[in-house]
Nucleic acid binder design. Structure first.
Lengths: 204, 204, 204, 204
DNA sequence: GATGAATGAGGTTTCATTCAT
DNA sequence: AATGAATGAAACCTCATTCAT
């Protein structure tokens, strides 16, 4: 958690810092990212940095929090909370869609999340022994779908959750590629869901 | 490319070096991995390291090459070369299966590949502007499947290839998790293919 | 010397500051002691600190003064002022006893004095080229004893004064050790004086 | 413990480093002493320092060891080992004398020892919970003197040992003062012993 | 007078790479 | 070819002190 001094800062400055941090952490893996560069880019003294944050990790954790918070804000909470009104695939579609919307609005956050997801060492350093929350979420959703009767009861939720998670990253990666940003989301999502829902085999 | 001196080394020594390198790069992200540790663990002088390799990146690139080579060796070449004899899903199954076999036989290589895949900075540093070879492979396979008439012609091969790739990583990750190593591969593969082939929707 | 602002402070606040300072300087050697901690612990702003004191050294000097003043207050002034009424060893006993009383009443001040005494660099930084006042005091006392005829005229006052000073520190250290605080002072003092007395008293 | 690289160094260089270290640690308390200065003064790169020593503390510990070793070498070992041939006061005299000889030959080491002795924090950091070895030595010597019948059985060895230790420091301090270095040691020692002897010897 | 943010010099330590033997 | 010492840039972090309100 950043120190109070950070939160007492004028918003404009706080944003400059967060902005600089995002740029640096997006460009380099955690251990390569340099506090000096962040401070310089934010236009603050190196010493000031340490009046705002405990240390580099403190800032990074905070960034993660911001990211999670922001990401959650993209989810249609009405849907999540009263999910019994929706079918499993509707929910899944919403989840993926919110992911895309988030990624499009916050393209610089995406690489940070990606790096985080693949650096287990770091992940544990930051979140302790927590499981991967994302996978967990999908697992629960699948169990729910099974209960609902829309998901094949024979599938292994652990495995499929992992797949859904992996696909989610792939999806984001796909739309992030240059020139694809203005693609029609609906088309992509629908292709993907079609893929998930029915498989890709040509039916006769 | 390692220098000639490296290839003139007695095989035993060469292996010790590669082994040490794998251990280090498996344990730490590229920039965290230390040349010193590799040299120490391989039982060679730090100076010698630079007589064998241009620099750290040179070794890493070589490791990647070895890995790709080894990974390819797991693929049933007969199948690939005369693919016209097989259906698309048979081929896909073989690809995934070879991935699993490779991962099980070379568990220490897996994390290196994972890290590599998610560090684009590094990827480009190493491979220049090359596309992702893995995704490319799946794309071609899909095109082939389309031509063969087994794959829905409406799908976007770029997107689906990305999905298949992501799922491949997820799959490896799944079987690498503790306690899952002695799982029956066939079961997993089949679940996954079932997923891909038919989707996960419960059919009535 | 602290600035006027310091002395204009309400006593309660002044005490809080001094208290915090004592804690910090007792716990860490001068250069390790942190202004920040003192300010925090005293509940004042860091900026305020510099409105009260020129700098860290200024506070420390002042602390030393307070300490000396307090220490002197433990000496039986009647004895010192009309010392002709007392024998040398009575006076010495009183000096040591006052030292013990002071130490027991102000245990947190003791380590500060100790540190100070052994850090010549610091001592000179603070007191300039002044001699050690304590040693000086003992020297004068010894001269007096000689004049009085109770102290062996053959001894070198400079040397013995140094010894007496050293023993004084050792004595304090001894009674400060855990569990010794409630020891019977008289016994210790008497043992010690017995030791000193036999050592330097004039024999007939 | 310094690393092997340090011991593999040519003696001349090793000495330059130790010399520089002694100078720095003699001039400043441990936490004020700067690795940079030591490296500069020794004419080595800062990086090299860390090839020789684990860190600053490592060097300091080593210095302490050297000091103890050197100090011990000044003691007449014949006397210590067959102490039954000597009287307590003869032994004590020898101990003090060796202390003086050591101090005179190694004046730069003296302040280091002094600082160490008075910085308990540091002492524990380096020696763990060990008691003060010096005081302990005197205590044993006193017990021995009691057994021998030369030391007053009524004295408290713990207290007197502390005194003897304190006096030892005072003594060294005394002869170290400018202009006193060429003083006649014997005279000082004898004065001091006379002082001690009359203080604690067993009376008949 | 009080506040607390801002500063930046300086400290320790790491590590890829070069150099001398 | 092999060694391992030497190097120095660069990283993180601390803290006394100044500054602006």
């Amino acid at each position: 958690m950043p120190k109070d001094t950070f939160f007492n800062l004028p918003e404009e400055k706080r944003e400059r810092i967060i902005d600089a941090a995002i740029d640096e952490f997006a460009a380099y893996p955690y251990h390569q990212a340099r506090v000096t560069v962040i401070a310089d880019q934010a236009g603050i003294a190196k010493g000031s940095f340490y009046q705002y944050f405990e240390d580099k990790k403190d800032l990074f954790k905070y960034l993660m929090e911001l990211m999670v918070e922001k990401k959650l804000s993209y989810i249609n909470h009405d849907m999540v909370e009263s999910r019994e009104k929706y079918g499993f695939f509707q929910l899944l579609r919403e989840v993926y869609l919110s992911g895309i919307r988030f990624a499009k609005d916050n393209p610089r956050l995406v690489p940070i999340g990606m790096k985080m997801a693949s650096d287990k060492e770091l992940y544990h350093e930051i979140y302790g022994e927590h499981l991967d929350k994302g996978v967990d979420f999908f697992k629960q959703l699948l169990e729910y779908g099974k209960g609902q009767g829309t998901v094949d009861p024979a599938i292994d939720p652990a495995l499929v959750a992992k797949m859904l998670m992996g696909m989610s990253y792939s999806l984001i990666d796909f739309i992030m590629e240059d020139g694809k940003l203005d693609f029609d989301d609906m088309k992509i999502i629908d292709q993907m869901l079609h893929f998930v829902e029915n498989g890709i085999k040509k039916r006769v």
